[in-house]
Amino acid sequence: MPVAFAIHDLTADGSLTRIGNNLVDGVSNGAIWALVALGYTMVYGIVELINFAHGEVFMIGSFIAFAAFGWFGMDLNTAIPLLILGLLLCLLISAIASGTLNAMIERVGYRPLRDAPKLAPLITAVGFSFILQNVGVLWLGGSQVSVPDLIGSQDVLFQISGVEVTNGDALAILTTVPLVLALTFFIDRARLGKAMRATAQDPDAARLMGIDVDKTISATFLIGGLLAGAAGLIYALYQTTIWFHQGFEAGLIAFTAAVMGGIGNLRGAVIGGILIGVIQQISDNRIGPEWTPVIVFAFLVLVMVVRPRGLIGEETRQAG
């Protein structure tokens, strides 16, 4: 699809600037979805549950980040070295808060239902999603709240033949890449990562091999939440507005990305997130932002129906 628009732009404007800008905006926005999607795909890969509250965990991450900016008195006048230090600290806080929240939800809402029909924990997940949304409403009210534009999100960092890369784009991409690399490295190498893979493939066998399955699952929710919290902070800086409802759509988008990438497949989820980001940008820019949700949801239906096992890569666990 981007290719088709590229050809269209070439014939219409004689340049690729417009599609180039769409792509940059899309990739950076998609990088945020990718972080959220990672949590989805890890959790689904290991307990086969659509953690419907995951989007809200991301939203809470944004809210915490916003609050943390206030605690540290960070504003537009903060000197750059201090700003970077502060942001790193805020990143840590929002990630840990969201991670803990996600792990707590698992403990309270999903673990007791592990032997129940699969729809039962999905229903509690929907319940948690609404509870957290209301927490958001009570916290910051029912409408959009602006976040101090600490990084000058829309300021152009550099330009390549008319295609602008803003500070926001750079932030999103430069935070996501190391996080994803660290995560994949961790899952491939670390002991806990191996336990997670084993549990995802066969929980019973993993238990027999002496893996503490409960602890592994908790850790998965924790890591997923950490990433969602990080994404929450980036989102707040990138969009410069946050509100209680941002998690709902983010959650659905991220889940679509996870399905597209093949559930359980980390790299697939990242690619899926970025692809959806690009689709959103193109739709915002060319059809109208009010129609973007329809486009995204239609795309979601299409992916789930046509390729429920993913466009890219394979599932780690057989559907059964």
């Binding site: 129940a116 509690t124 929907v126 319940g127 509870i131 409403v137």
Partner: peptide, 20 residues
């Protein structure tokens, strides 16, 4: 009334855990 969403969400959670 501001938290009616949460009340319904809470009902879903409680029913599923205590009396599915």
């Amino acid at each position: 009334t501001q938290v009616s969403f949460a009340i319904f969400g809470f009902i879903l959670v409680i029913v599923m855990i205590l009396r599915p």
